[in-house]
Design a protein around this nucleic acid. Structure first.
Length: 873
RNA sequence: GGGCGAUUGGCUCAGGGGGAGAGCACCUCCCUUACAAGGAGGGGGUCAGAGGUUCAAAUCCUCUAUCGCCCACCA
């Protein structure tokens, strides 16, 4: 039997096992129709990404689930891969080009894309390599990328099918435009943030009257694009002005006063400037009143030729200039402070410009409907359940999805325009126009929203649209685990496309894990420097400790993470290591026993162990990974190590009876082996390393069977008996400490009790108490000894014979304190039992328990008082 | 403006109708041959506040306060 080093050294162990597992192909999910599949598709990280705490948590969680199922005998597939991340990746490569003084426009589309692919080949696997460091048991042979050939075909097919079904259309609308990324964004890619700004009150003079109308706006610069001022038709203040003409300040255009229900009468002045090309509401008002739409911005948000004198200014410069001009012209009535939310690009945080342009959209309502139903019907469950409401709220108010992006990196839209005006949408490039036969066709230059392609992830990765073996066997997948901020962006859309194109739900459970925050409760962010790098943690504490530390905190609330919290986990890993070391050190002569001779403690730990197996399995069913961690931590440390290992020592060191010895050895192995298996999904490396050294170890813990509860070993009677011994032991230790008995000094103990059952337990297991509490003589007596300190546990009076060591004054005080405390409790219980309503309405079980408590307390007080009298005499 | 979540010992968090818990920190003792990344013992909380339901509330309901998150076209 090989003995372990004194302290656990994770680094040495981790690389060795991971490459071993790979070479054995344990993570490869081989289709076996006799077995059930269990599938998780990884939320594909961006190729630009590197592992952050959120990834570390989410992937530890997925690995935990997949490893457990693998051990349970499922064909467990964890399908990995990456996302091409259109805007993000394009930005990164453009930045690189900028260092060389180049722009993508200078390079041209084709060369630029070549550069991006080169970049991808070089850096795109960074994050998947990091996942290996985390111990993730992904099936790397099935790794996918959202721009793989097959995957791209799936994307095109979905687009083409939706188009021909009328669910994708092209339209001119106000969309969210990022003036820095120079592309449209969908509504959910815009992050709203409250900012302190102003409300400017501006006078718009009437053409034919010597007066003016005052409008209030947060964006004075857009007045250059105004084509009307609108008031509410019910607003008596303005009734007479409807239909009159105003002179637009700074632009000197004539615009009408119109009436529209949209306008609120209480905000501002009740008069609204209408800029159809730069505000979604104004756009709609414009449609109703047939107003012209004047675009005043260039794509990078500078004033264009429609802005007259302000041509070339950027939007903020133009604002200042216009305010100044208004002020000079006496047209600025007043300025108020005003807080409002404005949208920012989720990629570069530039302020979004509502911008009129022609884009492709997906009609969402028909897709959303069945996706709502499957969640309502419980076919897909969210964990925690409260996220279902979040999902419903969004789905029930869903808006059409703008899917075209004016960037180059991504899936180019499979639409071709003919000079005759015909639009051809199909998978392959057409050789000629289907209408006029012209060969002069140009493909739409836009690419699709990255989320359009990731929406297909659960089935496109399995080979769809081909009816592949993988697709048939592994789809629908089982669990999806992700962060809550992509419930709309990703989860909802996967459900919609899965139902539509793979004819089934994409997964039956959506686990929404908590967000990892800093210890101050702030979001972790690289740019703010508040992030923690999980690889640093792995380096410092080991992968297993890092995983345990994250998972034990993964409860239903967000977690405030700090590095110190990993110390607990590292210590736990070390504890596992050393307890195993102890076991292995005492196994040198081990032979699997043919006969057993169990003691109370053996039966106790076997019972506890099986309780724990069942608790762990239940917690897994609820996806309560934190509970799994806690149950195992508590059991291993506070029961197995603190009690069973300690109890086993005297027998292992001194016992001559070889059957007893073998029984203890067997029990140690039984418990350790099972605990390691239960811990393996959380802490894969240390458990494998130790497991391999246990007698009878087979191939690998990775593919070893998951523990099943053996109910025949669960014995509540035994657990109660053991707890009596533990209580007596603690009582003796406590008295020793109270009276400062040196640890090495052996003491004599006398216990006094009447209960014959308890007497038997104590006399049968004296060795536990004498060894655990350093007792030389342990007597069950019918006489109370003098000159001793006393404690009462479970009705047993425990006397520590301390002639000469006892400070009687102190002991009196202590006893009086205990009496007082017991009496306080007695009063409370007394009141309860005096309450007739309680006796009448509370369940009999509760009443009985309270009465029993009262008896125990009375007895205890009586005993304590007797002792007090005796000591004083 | 709407919704969701949180409020439990100094800190970070469990618990979720009938005995207030853990880890860290703190105090005392111990380098005992698995482990000082450890062991033994101990102190510390009227469970944010106010009402209500109940025989019984940290736990369920209502309201309030504070913090956080999400959604939203009031310019």
């Amino acid at each position: 039997m090989e003995i372990l080093d004194k302290a656990y050294n994770p680094k040495e162990v981790e690389d060795r096992w991971y490459s071993r597992w790979l070479s054995k192909r344990y993570f490869y999910a081989k289709i076996d129709k006799e077995k059930k599949p269990f599938t998780i598709v990884i939320p594909p990280p961006n190729i630009t990404g590197s592992l952050h705490m959120g990834h570390a948590l989410n992937n530890s969680l997925q690995d935990m689930l997949i490893r457990k199922k693998r051990m349970e005998g499922y064909v467990a597939l964890w399908l990995p891969g990456t996302d091409h991340a259109g805007i993000a990746t394009q930005n990164v490569v453009e930045k690189e080009l900028a260092k060389e003084g180049l722009t993508r426009q200078q390079l041209g589309r084709e060369n630029f894309l070549k550069r991006v692919w080169e970049w991808k080949e070089k850096y795109g696997d960074t994050i998947t390599e990091q996942l290996k460091k985390l111990g993730c048991s992904c099936d790397w042979e099935r790794t996918r990328f959202t721009m793989d050939e097959g995957y791209s075909l799936a994307v095109k097919k979905v687009f083409v099918d939706l188009y021909h079904e009328g669910l994708i259309y092209k339209g001119k609308r106000i969309i969210n435009w990022c003036p820095r990324c120079l592309t449209a964004l969908s509504d959910i890619e815009v992050e709203h943030e409250e900012v302190e700004s102003h409300l400017w009150y501006i006078r718009y003079p009437f053409k034919d009257l010597d007066s003016y109308l005052v409008i209030a706006t947060t964006r004075p610069e857009t007045l250059l694009g105004d084509t009307a001022v609108a008031v509410n038709p019910k607003d008596s203040r303005y009734k007479d002005y409807i239909g009159r003409t105003l002179i637009l300040p700074c632009a000197y255009r004539e615009i009408p006063v119109i009436a529209d229900d949209f306008v609120g009468m209480t905000f501002g002045t009740g008069a609204l400037k209408v800029t159809p090309a730069h505000d979604p509401n104004d756009f709609e008002i414009g449609e109703r009143h047939d107003l012209s739409r004047i675009n005043i911005f260039t794509p990078d948000a500078k004033i264009n030729e429609n802005g007259g004198d302000y041509l070339g200014m950027d939007r903020y410069g133009a604002r200042e200039a216009i305010i100044m001009d208004l002020e000079e012209g006496g047209l600025l009535e007043k300025v108020e402070r005003h807080v409002h939310a404005i949208g920012h690009c989720y990629r570069c945080h530039t302020v979004i410009e509502p911008y009129l342009s022609e884009q492709w959209f997906v009609k969402m309502e028909p897709l959303a409907k069945p996706a709502i139903e499957v969640v309502e019907e419980g076919k897909i469950k969210f964990v925690p359940k409260r996220w279902e409401k979040v999902y419903f709220d969004w789905m029930e108010n869903i808006k059409d999805w703008c899917i075209s992006r004016q960037i180059w990196w991504g899936h180019q839209i499979p639409a071709w325009y003919c000079e005759c005006g015909e639009i051809i949408v199909q998978l392959e490039e057409p050789s000629s126009c289907s209408k006029c036969k012209s060969h002069n066709l140009v493909q739409d230059s836009d690419v699709l929203d990255t989320w359009f392609s990731s929406a297909l992830w659960p089935f496109a990765t399995l080979g769809w649209p081909e009816e592949t073996e993988d697709l048939v066997y592994f789809y629908p997948t089982s669990v999806l685990s992700t962060a809550r901020d992509i419930i709309y962006l990703w989860v909802a859309r996967m459900i919609m496309t899965g139902l539509k194109f793979a004819n089934n739900i994409p997964f039956h459970t959506v686990v929404i894990h908590p967000t990892v925050l800093t210890i101050e409760g702030k979001r972790m962010s690289k740019s703010l420097g508040t992030g923690v790098d999980p690889l640093d943690l792995i380096e410092k504490y080991g992968t297993d400790a890092t995983r345990f530390g994250l998972l034990v905190q993964a409860q239903s609330q967000d977690m405030r993470f700090s590095e110190e919290k990993l110390e607990m986990s590292r210590n736990f890993a070390n504890k596992i290591w050393n307890a195993s070391r102890f076991v292995l050190m005492n196994l040198k002569d081990y032979q699997p026993p043919e006969k057993f001779k169990y003691n109370l403690a053996d039966l106790w730990i076997l019972s506890r162990c099986n309780h724990v197996i069942s608790q762990v399995n239940k917690a897994f069913e609820r996806y309560d990974v934190s509970e799994v961690c806690r149950v195992l931590y508590d059991f291993f440390w506070s029961e197995f190590c603190d009690w069973y290992v300690e109890v086993s020592k005297p027998s292992l060191y001194g016992e001559v009876d070889s059957i007893r010895r073998q029984t203890i050895q067997h029990t140690l192995i039984y418990v350790l082996e099972r605990t390691l298996s239960l811990l393996h999904p959380i802490m894969p490396f240390i458990t494998e390393e130790i497991w391999q050294k246990l007698p009878g170890a087979k191939e690998s813990i990775v593919v070893s069977p998951w523990p099943k509860t053996d109910t025949s070993l669960i014995n509540n009677e035994i657990e109660k008996e053991m707890s009596l011994l533990m209580s007596v032991t603690v009582a003796i230790r406590s008295l020793r400490a109270e009276f400062k008995v040196p640890p090495e000094k052996k003491v004599s103990v006398v216990v006094f009790l009447h209960d014959s059952g308890k007497k038997r337990i104590l006399s049968d297991n004296t060795l536990y108490i004498t060894s655990l509490a350093n007792v030389s003589e342990f007597k069950i007596s019918l006489e109370k000894p003098e000159h001793s300190a006393m404690a009462i546990v479970e009705g047993v009076e425990v006397f520590l014979l301390l002639a000469g060591l006892i400070d009687f004054k102190k002991e009196c005080l202590r006893l009086e304190g205990e009496i007082a405390e017991a009496k306080k409790e007695l009063v409370k219980i007394g009141e309860k039992l005096a309450n007739r309503e309680f006796l009448k309405k509370a369940p009999g079980e509760i009443v009985r328990k309270e009465k029993e408590k009262k008896e125990v307390l009375l007895e205890k007080i009586n005993k304590l008082e007797n002792q007090l009298v005796q000591i004083k005499s």
